[in-house]
Design a protein around this nucleic acid. Structure first.
Length: 896
DNA sequence: GGGGGAAGGATTC
DNA sequence: TCACGGAATCCTTCCCCC
């Protein structure tokens, strides 16, 4: 393989000339420069590694190919042929789909506004990365997605203009205005491209008088910016494609003042491009075809400033497809191209010929897609208003190793993301942290919450815990990052956003003060959506409970194998915690030990779930806790905390509504289990029932504040925080009985260091320095077990029990995290032989754990074990399970 | 075996 | 001189649970 290394690498970092204006370049010369400039860099090394992974993928594929018998091929061919016939039958040629793509959009806008750039090679972007380049620059091999410094090597005279998105957006809006006249439901793909379905427009257009198809150049001129002369525009006027029957302007006057366009699809598109150019002075290219896939390819055919049409006939489509390189098709990237090339497939004709083989080597999704491509088939129905699936923000920066700085950046990202989410009224349940280390290795860590979030605090609560695990995993080495990103996905549907969702917590609340807070908690997450007031998400929650952090939520019950070391250690602590609780409650809660703790930490399991869902989850048996029902108990046991000092216990079954006095928790849980088995769904109450019930519950005498607080503090054994450090600082402080003395959530008091969001240039205040600051902070009760009524207290670390003289909660938070981490590691060391940390803490630890009892199960998990070192990059092989095997099993064929 | 979460990767602009 | 992005989507694989 070494001998091919150079050639292999070229396929990854070498020039990608699959772009208009880059034909016929001296690739060897350009690649030599690119290679020389890149070689030795960490980026290059990482690319090399990725390249090798792709090569291994290919090797595996070739091995699979070698195992395919003639018989199998025959069967596969029959399968393919059958599907091909079906697809042929359903081929639709009736729609007129157009893909319009602005030519070198950003560069064109910049050149328009700065004419002296017109004749120079220029690109838009920075020395780090270029967004696009003009056609002069492309002749030097300079293209989009190329770092500016490499582009400069290729073209020393290159002018790099910084991006100005406001400007591009403005031009884009002008263009879209025109699009909407041809297809009100056009589908924008980005600022510079869109799909249109011209079918309806063309039907109407047939009957349009000439006047409706006439565009006056003078009029167009007036549409343009006044500061650009007509002469200038003429100079920029497109030379419209020459073969069109009506490409020659039909002049209505001797002075070339107006142009009449025909009624055909070509003419309509030509007219559209003409208008775009007249209005913006920027040219566009277009593709006209019976489907989106073809239209997209077509728009690139005569770039720049041209258009191409595939007639709506099968013969024409197949003729067009025949010699089309697969790489030209949207969705086929460099990896797929290389894999196909290894099979001798370069163009679509070959793709079609090798379909049987492909069906045996690739997943169903993949080879079906290949089959569509080979037949020139694509979507004819443009998906309108497809819902967003995720939202994220990420930042690249110079090497960052300081944990505090990383947490601070994380918070900043969460802040930005929260603003974006709230702007669009979105809430999602999954928070993903993306990290790229200085070796360019990317990893992501996700956590799915039990409720949807949108505020900075909520997102950060999850993200920081994910970050902590990563920082801890390489400790004592610093985590060296070059990128961090935060994503929120799993958006709740409009249906889920409805207010007054009933939670099992609501049913269970007997204490007036807390019952309110639970429903408010559920409601709080919905408020912003309901009234459309994004800011409400950030309002200090006057009556609502602080949403627990990830640590506070018990992860969805899964097998211990799937729990991380931290999670399992956390569970252990929770068990210990519950044992203490048993003493307090004075009841036999042995069987509920874990669940009780879970109840304490998981405050919102059902907040965003429907009752049906709740009921379902309630009846779920959970092996994780060795109890019969995890969620029901935790839901039930929550109030048990509230009434911990009240004897006897008086609980209401959330299913049958029966009040049970002086019942121990095990019995109560068993009762609920039985109820759920019998009538979980049938008894689903209506929304009004839930409200009514809630009101009734609220009217019941509340548990006393002191009881509640005592319970909270007693239940909050600092040691329990070892695995869930942030619990100590973000555990909800509930409102008091009268609701007037609500304790502001911890994060509400966080201060922005230096009052600045960007951490990239932020100088962090050392802990010792900040320690001189006053240490009066509310909400410390949750941390320091001090009465909730107390104020102005010293911040006491619940782990090391040392006073922390800082009022900077972020710093305090970090301190607690550090302490907790140390304690976890200490505990770990106690139970395991010494570990050599010379390589990486966690990888070594996990390596050591490989043959040790319960923890070894973690090692078995690819996900758990792969993080963070050795490099998490896994070779993605073509699994027989999902390709050949699956294929044959699914078709009653013989296995290989 | 299917569903679903987590993690990584491919692809696009 | 140093220096290789950001956002979104879809797919695949692994793993656990049911």
């Amino acid at each position: 393989m070494e001998s091919h290394q150079g050639a292999d690498l070229l396929s990854r970092i070498a020039l990608n000339d699959n772009k208009a204006g880059m034909e016929g370049l001296d690739r060897d010369k350009i690649n030599k420069i690119i290679l020389e400039t890149s070689k030795g860099s960490r980026f290059y090394e990482n690319e090399l590694k990725k390249e090798q992974q792709v090569n291994q993928r290919i090797e595996k594929m070739m091995e699979q190919k070698a195992r395919i018998t003639k018989e199998l091929m025959k069967q596969a061919q029959a399968e393919v042929d059958k599907l091909r016939c079906e697809l042929e039958r359903s081929r639709e040629l009736g729609r007129v789909i157009v893909h319009v793509d602005m030519d070198a959009f950003y560069a064109a806008v910049e050149m328009r506004d700065c004419p002296e750039l017109k004749d120079k090679p220029m690109a838009v972007g920075s020395m780090s990365m270029l967004s696009t380049s003009n056609y002069h620059a492309r002749r030097f091999g300079v293209r989009a997605a190329m770092p500016g410094f490499i582009a400069k090597k290729l073209c020393p005279n290159l002018v790099i203009v910084p991006t100005n998105f406001d400007k591009y957006r403005a031009v884009s809006a002008q263009v879209r205005e025109i699009f909407s006249e041809y297809d009100p439901h056009f589908m924008p793909m980005s600022l510079d491209e869109a799909y249109l379905d011209l079918s309806e427009h063309l039907e109407q257009r047939k009957h349009w008088p000439e006047t409706m198809r006439t565009y006056c150049i003078c009029d167009a001129t007036t549409e343009n910016d006044a500061d650009r002369s007509t002469a200038e525009k003429d100079e920029l006027s497109p030379v419209l494609f020459e073969d069109s029957p009506s490409s020659s302007p039909s002049l209505s006057g001797a002075d070339r003042k107006a142009e009449v366009f025909g009624t055909s699809a070509e003419e309509a598109v030509r007219e559209m491009r003409f208008r775009i150019q007249q209005k913006t002075s920027i040219t566009a290219s277009a593709g006209i075809a019976p489907n989106m896939m073809l239209a997209k390819v077509c728009s690139d055919k005569n770039k720049p400033n041209g258009q191409y049409r595939i007639p709506p006939e099968r013969q024409a489509v197949m003729e067009f497809i025949k010699d089309l390189p697969v790489r030209k098709v949207s969705g086929v990237g460099k990896v797929t191209e290389k894999m196909l090339a290894a099979l001798g497939i370069v163009n679509c004709d070959q793709l079609g010929q090798q379909m049987a083989l492909l069906s045996l080597l690739f997943s169903g999704t993949s080879w079906h897609n290949f089959l569509h491509i080979s037949l020139g088939l694509g979507s004819t129905c443009m998906e309108r208003d497809s819902e967003r699936k995720s939202m994220s923000t990420e930042r690249t920066f110079g090497e960052m190793s300081d944990a505090e700085e990383q947490y601070s950046l994380c918070r900043d990202l969460c802040h930005d993301l929260a603003q974006d989410l709230q702007r669009e009224g979105l809430k999602g349940k999954t928070v993903t942290l993306k990290l790229k280390n200085v070796q360019f290795e990317v990893k992501s860590r996700a956590f799915t919450l039990q409720y949807a979030v949108c505020t900075e605090e909520e997102i950060f609560a999850a993200a920081k815990d994910l970050l902590k695990v990563e920082i801890d995993s390489v400790s004592p080495q610093p985590l060296k990052l070059r990128l961090m990103g935060v994503r929120v996905s799993g958006f709740i549907s409009a249906e889920d956003k409805k207010p007054l969702q009933r939670s099992i917590m609501g049913f269970l609340q007997k204490g007036g003060s807390d019952s309110g807070s639970f429903t408010q908690c559920a409601g709080s997450a919905l408020k912003a959506d309901d009234d459309g007031d994004a800011a409400s998400c950030l309002k200090p929650p006057s009556t609502e409970m602080k949403v627990p952090s990830v640590s506070e939520q018990i992860p969805k019950p899964r097998g211990p194998q799937q729990q991380s070391f931290f999670q399992r250690a956390q569970m252990k602590r929770l068990q210990q915690q519950q044992e203490q609780m048993s003493v307090i409650v004075g009841k036999d809660t042995t069987n509920n030990s874990v669940d009780a703790a879970a109840a304490q930490t998981d405050l919102s399991t059902t907040n965003t779930q429907s009752d049906t869902t709740s009921a379902k989850s309630l009846s779920t048996t959970n092996s994780w806790t060795d109890a019969t029902s995890y969620t029901n108990k935790h839901a039930v046991l929550k109030p048990s905390f509230k009434i911990s000092t009240q004897v006897p216990l008086c609980l209401t079954c959330p299913v049958c509504n029966k009040e049970m006095k002086d019942v121990n928790l095990t019995a109560f849980n068993s009762h609920i289990d039985e109820c759920l088995k019998g009538s979980a769904v049938d008894n689903e109450p209506t929304a009004s029932d839930a409200v009514k019930e809630q009101e009734e519950l609220n009217s019941k005498p509340p548990a006393s504040s002191s009881e509640s607080k005592t319970l909270k503090s007693s239940s909050h054994d600092p040691s329990c925080d070892e695995e869930k450090p942030s619990t100590s600082i973000s555990v909800p402080v509930e409102e008091t009985d009268d609701g007037s003395d609500f304790k502001t959530p911890f994060f509400a008091h966080r201060t922005k260091i230096n009052g600045k969001r960007s951490v990239l240039h932020k100088k962090k205040m050392p802990l010792s320095e900040s320690s001189s600051k006053a240490s009066q902070t509310a909400s410390l009760e949750a941390v320091t077990e001090i009465s909730s009524a107390s104020k102005g207290l010293l911040l006491m670390c619940p782990v090391c029990s040392q006073p922390q003289s800082t009022d900077d909660l972020a710093l305090f938070n970090s301190h607690v995290d550090m302490c907790l981490n140390q304690e976890v590691l200490l505990e770990f060391r106690e139970s395991h032989p010494p570990v050599d940390h010379s390589d990486s803490a966690l990888s070594s630890v996990r390596g050591q754990l490989g043959d040790q009892g319960r923890v070894s199960k973690v090692e078995k998990s690819k996900r758990q074990g792969s993080s963070p070192l050795p490099p998490s990059k896994k070779i993605k092989v073509l699994s027989t399970k999902h390709t050949i095997d699956k294929f044959f099993k699914g078709n009653s064929r013989q296995n290989i």
